[in-house]
């Protein structure tokens, strides 16, 4: 535990070692996210509401997605690099240490740009999410669950690279989650909708949490936690199994 805390402290120290660039990277991401707010405002101004979604709850969706994305891609920045690390043999340094490798890898790197997403998400919720103590509590819970799910999904998709020897699946999984999570689930129908509640659980990283904040219901909350738990377990298992097939880049250098 002490080791993991020290690792994370160093990751933070590293990302802040160049203060000016840290601040500018965060600001750029915040501006980037504001473009999305702008889009949704313009969109709903024009079309009214769409299948129960309007300018108000879409901003809740955006705040949960960016905050959870900020944690999974910014604070635990290596989550989306698992596949690359597996293929390029970058896990040697971790495996030579007496630490639980997945936890260490995840805490080892913070990415300033995506920390900007986290900052944005929180600020957006506070400014446009009509925060009350109860809603804020649900927001924190939902972001926590969504970020666990998102991180787990990225690790799971990346771990496929241990078995496939290539990382296309990881890359696509990452893009799919981010793109699909950015839109309300109800614009989809049929098989696509089922898919987004199961194999690519994008519904649970944005739409479901946003609805929970608006209108809390224990059943959906339990569902969210359960899905996050299942994916976390699958991610950890596939990473651990994958390590047995890890080739450390030795295929080329031996």
């Amino acid at each position: 535990m002490r080791g993991l805390a020290a690792t994370f402290r160093n990751a933070l120290a590293e990302v802040r070692s160049n203060r000016a660039s840290f601040v500018s990277q965060i600001s750029v991401m915040v501006l980037n996210d504001i473009v999305w707010v702008f889009f949704w405002v313009l969109f709903f101004r024009r079309v009214g509401s769409v299948r129960g979604w309007d300018g108000r709850n879409i901003l809740l969706l955006l705040s949960v997605l960016t905050a959870a994305g900020g944690i999974a891609l910014g604070v635990l920045a290596n989550a989306r690099r698992i596949g690359t690390m597996a293929v390029d043999g970058q896990l040697d340094a971790v495996l030579a240490l007496p630490v639980p490798p997945l936890a260490h890898v995840l805490l080892r790197r913070v990415e300033a740009t995506n920390v900007g997403d986290l900052v944005f998400g929180v600020v957006l919720f506070l400014s446009a999410g009509s925060p009350t103590p109860a809603r804020a509590a649900v927001f924190v819970f939902a972001v926590a669950a969504a970020s666990v799910l998102l991180t787990a999904f990225l690790v799971l998709a990346g771990s496929l690279a241990f078995f496939a020897g290539r990382n296309e699946a990881g890359e696509l999984g990452f893009h799919a989650m981010i793109v699909l999570g950015a839109y309300p689930i109800d614009i989809f129908a049929g098989a696509a909708k089922v898919l987004l509640y199961t194999a690519v659980p994008a519904a649970f990283v944005s739409s479901v949490p946003a609805r929970l904040i608006e209108d809390f219901d224990a059943g959906s909350a339990a569902c969210l936690v359960a899905v996050a738990g299942v994916f976390a377990f699958a991610a950890s298992a596939s990473f651990t199994l994958g390590l047995r097939r890890y080739t450390s880049g030795s295929v080329w250098t031996r």
């Binding site: 805390a5 020290a6 402290r9 007496p98």
Partner: peptide, 8 residues
């Protein structure tokens, strides 16, 4: 410092 913490 980090390595020392990791190695206890």
């Amino acid at each position: 410092r980090m390595l020392a913490a990791i190695y206890g």
